[in-house]
């Protein structure tokens, strides 16, 4: 698999668009997931993914083959997502009552439960809006995306202690926010 990606990247470096198409098809869902969790909006996440792959095409020769391709890609996704967030386009105002209700019924055990993208986006937005940028990124990548600490450090170019402290502060912020918002939280436990 690792050898495959190395070969594909070599092809892309030589300007092979079919190889690049294959690279996009293989990785765009992963890139979309991360982008969506940061920008909390489907259209913005698609823009971020598109921007990310254009940057990859432009800068593929600067990719260091000693690194994991996905780590490099996620770095680009995060930078593009930050640009998108800073550009000021915000998600629609969320109806807190509805989200609280959805949170209470956020149950993966039920076979018929389908949460639409925007509902997921609303919930992530609800719990992470108001966090400082670094804290939000660490929280989203570590707790919501589920990357391990080392991967978060590599993607964000942050020191271990910085990741830990930002994560701690983010979790405290989210805890306080949720305890105020959720009247039905006890049913989740």
């Amino acid at each position: 698999m690792q050898q495959d990606i190395v070969n594909i990247i070599e092809e892309v470096k030589s300007g092979n668009k079919m190889a690049f198409k294959h690279l996009v098809e293989e990785h765009q869902q992963y890139a979309f997931n991360v982008a969506f969790r940061v920008v909390c909006n489907e259209e913005d996440a698609k823009d971020v993914v598109q921007d990310c792959f254009i940057k990859i095409w432009k800068n593929i020769n600067s990719f260091n083959a000693k690194l994991k391709f996905t780590t490099w890609m996620y770095k680009i996704v995060i930078n593009s997502a930050i640009d998108k967030l800073r550009s000021g386009k915000r998600a629609n105002m969320i109806n807190i009552d509805n989200v609280s209700e959805k949170l209470c019924h956020l149950d993966l055990n039920g076979p018929d439960v389908q949460i639409e993208n925007q509902e997921i986006g609303n919930i992530i937005s609800l719990i992470s809006d108001g966090l400082p940028e670094k804290q939000k990124l660490v929280f989203v990548l570590r707790d919501i995306q589920g990357f391990d600490s080392v991967e978060v450090q590599n993607i964000l170019d942050m020191h271990e202690t910085s990741v830990k402290s930002n994560l701690y502060n983010a979790r405290q912020f989210v805890r306080k926010k949720l305890s105020k918002l959720l009247a039905c939280e006890r049913r989740l436990i």
Partner: peptide, 22 residues
């Protein structure tokens, strides 16, 4: 303690939910 568990529970559930690229 209950609040921490609630946050953990919600983030774990969100972690399992993938946003689907249409």
């Amino acid at each position: 303690y209950k609040d921490c568990r609630s946050v953990k529970k919600i983030t774990s559930l969100l972690n399992q939910k993938q946003a689907v690229l249409n």
